[in-house]
Each structure stands twice: as C-alpha cells, then as structure tokens.
C-alpha cells in the first residue's frame, strides 16, 4: 500500500483518479491544484507516489517535478499527460519522472502504473 498525492488543477481529474484508486490498497493522502501547492504537500505528506498533471497554473507539472526530484531524487512521480504533450513528457522523463500515463486512461491503467511503483 502506497501513500499517494494527486496533483491536478482540474477537480474533476482529481476526483476521477481518487475514485479509481478507491478500490485499490493505496491511500490518497493529499491533493494539490497546482505545482506550488504540490511541492508544499510533498514536503508535508511525504507521499510514496505522486500523480502529476502537466498543464497547471502558477507552477506547471514539469517545474514541480524538478523541485520534487531536487528534494528527493528517487521520488516516484507519474506524469499525467495527454496526446499532444510528447515534448513535455520527454522533458519530464529526462527530469526524473518514473513514467507517464496518457489521458484518457482507464482504472486498470493508473492502477498498473501505481502498483508497479508501490
């Protein structure tokens, strides 16, 4: 069982992911609506896994990822991307993201990614 932090500016996506994880053994310990908050919550909650949206106001997912990797180089961050964001995802991988998932995804998809890192 892993502690999970969900980062997405869209409440809809946060709820969706949370609902998908409900039935799993994992626990969503926090949510953040932008990169800035994500970093704060990461420090405060020390989650095992972070799901990170890329396009967000204030501080985007890439910058938040870099900050989190700077705090903990082995942090498990899964980028939540969409078609058309190939370049960003590449950046994220080079910056230390453990992988990515592409919207729209299904429950099995996100669970398999999280189970792998848990």
């Amino acid at each position: 069982m892993a502690k999970i932090l969900i980062v997405d500016d869209a409440a809809f996506m946060r709820i969706t992911i949370k609902n998908m994880l409900k039935k799993s053994a994992h626990e969503v310990v926090g949510e953040a609506e932008n990169g800035k908050v994500a970093i704060e919550r990461y420090k405060a909650l020390a989650p095992d896994i972070v799901t990170m949206d890329i396009t967000m106001p204030e501080l985007d997912g890439l910058q938040a990822l870099r900050e989190i990797i700077a705090i903990n180089p082995s942090a498990n961050v899964i980028m939540v991307s969409a078609m058309g964001q190939e370049a960003m995802v590449r950046e994220a991988i080079m910056s230390g993201a453990k992988g990515f998932i592409v919207k729209p995804f299904k429950e099995e998809g996100i669970l398999s990614a999280i189970d792998k890192l848990a």
């Binding site: 396009t55 106001p57 919207k103």
Partner: peptide, 18 residues
C-alpha cells in the same frame, strides 16, 4: 496561456468521460 490551459483541461476531462 490561459485559453490553452482551459482547452487542455476540457480535453482531458471530456476524454475521460468519453
């Protein structure tokens, strides 16, 4: 940037909802 972000979010959420 904002328009881009809004469209991105709507795209993602709508795709999830099929």
């Amino acid at each position: 940037d904002e328009v881009f972000r809004v469209m991105h979010t709507i795209k993602g959420a709508s795709a999830m909802m099929e």
